[in-house]
Design a protein around this nucleic acid. Structure first.
Length: 478
RNA sequence: GCACCCAUCGUCUAGCCCGGCCUAGGACACUGCCUUUUCACGGCGGCGACUGGGGUUCGAAUCCCCAUGGGUGUACCA
């Protein structure tokens, strides 16, 4: 039997970081098992669902590289993949339950039920449906409906306990009487979540349901419905929940919780995925940095964590830097070019210069945009106020270095050179060492302070050949 | 209230199922030092945890019970 898994978001907002994680786990499991990964849109909440959000979420999923095998935009053999287009299916399935006695019409008004709930709560009882409409026969109900009365369809919850085996939680038991008769079809004919999910998962031949722990209690209702249809339920894996620093379920108020924001902030999708993957799952070899697409059969349902994970982006930043460093130089150059201000001198340089430049700075970046601040060491005429720099400037040896280098640079400039080379730099430092008799810290810090006006930075042999000679000439005389 | 789930460094986690190799390992963060051609890189260190109490056992982070704490759910939301 081929594994079939699904990610079923509600198009009521942007793709949430927790949703992205669930989608990824499903995607990875399908890939590991050679199965299919399906995208289903759960838009039964007519008020809050919007087509725009569906499109945006699919766009974000694509950005992450989590491409589905079946879905509303790509089709498949088990469609439609939008719950709003499956009305006839829910109708047929709920009719089946009505016929075999597992469900019944309920004519109680919302006010009536609300009042009863309040009383139950006040008496510290569970506010379960009292079964008032249970005695209404199918024929009577049909007559009332024909006469214009509105009704919901309620599922007759069996009075027995349920148990199932969860891939993450192990043996889970729900004692008898946890839920009363619940609504499966609303008065407007739209199915309620727990019913639609079962109908869809069953008819789409879903074999494994991988989702977050918040759905664990829902499993009871779903198990009941599967039983009423005599359908074997899929296997379940309830991973941990993503929570905020306040240990509450992650939501908008915890800051950047939607995927599109990370795209805007220039995070690498593979880094976001890598981080998310580690929040609730661990790599068999305890690796921290990896491309989730290379996981293959290493991904399994046995390494999920049970306890909720606090979402903290500090580690994500680190991981982003690691992924960025492993990108081809050419790619980094292109990406970096996009975030450096258009008027920056960087853009006037030739290809080889840019590559060399990116190569020097790439190890220091967490994000592409970090490059801008590093570029200063190549173009800036600022003078550091770092005590170490000030000290280097105050040595009596430093003016002698400046005098010599100034002459050399002016000479090179007069010859029409645009840049000095690493060899030039070697010659200079040998001269300072041999002729000026300056060595050690005085030599290197002295040269650095004169050429960059900074106390720290990348090695001179890397940055000086990249610094335009006019900049060098100006700096010398500052 | 009731039901279910969970509990290892500040954070993510390994170890737990199949007790001894755990004076509990790794990563982020924080921090010290080294590299004296110098880094937000790298290397070497430091800080830092088995929620508490009982029990089983020669031996428990690992098994059992209780307590405590936290979370989720309890809708004609998903």
């Amino acid at each position: 039997m081929t594994v079939r898994v699904r990610f079923a978001p509600s198009p009521t907002g942007y793709l949430h970081i927790g949703g992205a994680r669930t989608a990824m786990y499903n995607y990875l499991y399908a890939k590991a098992m050679g199965g299919k990964y399906i995208l289903r849109i759960e838009d039964t909440d007519l008020e809050r669902s919007e087509r725009k959000f569906e499109e945006l979420q699919i766009e974000d999923l694509k950005w992450l590289g989590l491409n589905h095998d079946e879905g509303p935009d790509v089709g498949g053999d088990y469609g439609p993949y939008r719950q709003s287009e499956r009305g006839h299916i829910y109708k047929a399935w709920s009719d089946k339950l009505l016929t075999n006695g597992h469900a019944y019409h309920c004519f109680c008004s919302e006010e009536e039920l609300k009042a009863k709930n309040e009383i139950a709560l006040a008496e510290k009882r569970d506010p379960q449906y009292d079964g008032k409409c249970l005695s209404i026969t199918r024929a009577e109900a049909d007559k009332k409906i024909a006469a214009g009365e509105v009704a919901v369809i309620r599922f007759k919850a069996p009075r027995k306990s349920y148990a199932f085996n969860d891939h993450v939680r192990g043996h889970v038991e729900f004692p008898e009487g946890m839920v009363g008769d619940f609504v499966i079809m609303r008065a407007n004919g739209v199915p309620v979540y727990n019913f639609a999910v079962v109908v869809d998962d069953a008819s789409m031949k879903i074999t494994h349901v991988i989702r977050a722990e918040e759905h664990l209690p829902n499993t009871l209702r779903q198990l009941m419905i599967y039983e009423a249809f005599s359908v074997t339920p899929p296997e379940f894996a309830h991973g941990s929940l993503l929570i905020g620093e306040d240990r509450q379920k992650l939501s908008k108020r915890h800051g950047a919780t939607s995927v599109n924001l990370y795209k805007e902030m220039n995070y690498l999708p593979q880094a976001l995925l890598n981080y998310l993957c580690l929040l609730g799952w661990s790599h068999p070899d305890e690796k921290d940095i990896f491309d989730i697409h290379t996981l293959g059969t290493m991904f399994n349902l046995e390494r999920f964590t049970k306890a909720p994970a606090i979402y903290d982006i500090k580690k994500l930043d680190f991981i982003n830097g690691e992924h960025l460093r492993h990108l081809p130089l050419e790619t980094i150059m292109i990406e970096v070019g996009k975030v450096i201000p258009v008027e920056h001198a960087f853009h006037k340089m030739d290809h080889d210069w840019k590559i060399a430049c990116v190569n020097v700075f790439k190890d220091k970046l967490h994000f592409f945009q970090d490059i801008t601040q590093h570029l200063g060491v190549l173009f800036s005429l600022d003078i550091s106020n770092d005590p170490e720099y000030l000290e280097a400037r105050s040595w009596e040896t430093t003016p002698r270095i400046r005098e010599y280098l100034g002459a050399e640079i002016d000479k090179a400039k007069a010859c029409g050179k645009k840049f000095v080379t690493e060899e030039d730099l070697n010659v200079w430092s040998n001269h300072v060492k041999g002729e000026l008799k300056i060595k050690g810290k005085q030599l290197f810090m002295g040269m650095r302070s004169v050429l960059t006006h900074q106390a720290h930075g990348p090695e001179l042999k890397f940055i000086i050949p990249l610094t335009p000679i006019e900049i060098l000439a100006k700096r010398i005389h500052l």
